[in-house]
Nucleic acid binder design. Structure first.
Length: 220
DNA sequence: ACCCAGGTGGCCC
DNA sequence: GGGCCACATGGG
């Protein structure tokens, strides 16, 4: 594995931003919508999540009260298009029941210190590393760098980072080497997803990648 | 008829 | 602590 310290993350971010523009993530009108979206989007495309969110809104079901008291079959039916819908419906309901019981509201939960918040989120079934950090960053709005499949793939393919690097190790690397700034954290992750979606798919490999000149510069 | 998507949990060794 | 597998629908 090449030495990570050689990689200039600020340069990468600026290069991406000049290609894609400022992306202004996460889409979502409320914190609740961001949390639900973060779970629904696991291993699925955002397009399907949007359809599910619209369905929930049209049925007045995108509310704390509805989720906590929902009939799982009805709820599942509305989010069917995202895949794994029974599992996700169950997880989401349980998560919000836990929040209601212990914290009354999302805002109270999000007022916790971010390390404590992360620990609690990770203890809930249906929330793993990436989802926890997406919630912390985009709903609770605290600086936590989100690592996803694209970020790992891009860092591996373009910058030769160990393919099997652990989530926390890659996250720590980013957090040590970029400014502790909420807007930057949000947009940097968004830029990685944009690059991954368009140019760094599983197959074919990177094509016409806007970062190609950076790769050459760093690797050669 | 494949393969993939902004993962996660459970089980096995 | 890593390597599989199930979870499930929609799109290329």
């Amino acid at each position: 594995m090449r030495d990570k310290e050689e990689i200039d993350l600020d340069y990468i971010y600026n290069k991406l931003k000049s290609n894609f523009g400022f992306l202004n993530w996460w889409p979502g009108d409320t914190k609740l919508e961001v949390v639900i979206g973060a779970i629904l989007t696991q291993q699925t495309t955002w397009k399907n999540v949007e359809k599910a969110i619209i369905k929930l809104k049209n049925n007045n079901s995108l509310t704390f009260n509805y989720i906590v008291n929902c009939n799982l079959e009805d709820f599942g039916e509305m989010i069917k298009e995202v895949g794994f819908y029974k599992q996700k419906a169950t997880y989401i309901k349980n998560i919000f029941q836990f929040i209601e019981k212990n914290y009354k509201s999302l805002d109270n939960l999000f007022n916790l210190d971010k390390q404590e918040l992360r620990k609690i989120l990770l203890s809930l079934k249906g929330i793993g590393d990436e989802t926890a950090d997406s919630i912390i960053l985009y709903a609770a709005e605290k600086t936590k760098f989100v690592i996803d499949a694209y970020t790992k793939r891009i860092m591996h393919r373009l910058f030769n980072i160990n393919k099997n690097i652990k989530y926390n190790d890659l996250q720590e690397y980013f957090e040590r080497n970029i400014k502790n700034n909420l807007v930057l954290y949000k947009d940097f992750h968004a830029q990685f997803v944009e690059l991954g979606k368009n140019y760094c798919k599983l197959n074919p490999l990177c094509i016409n990648c806007p970062l190609t000149n950076i790769c050459k510069k760093i690797i050669n």
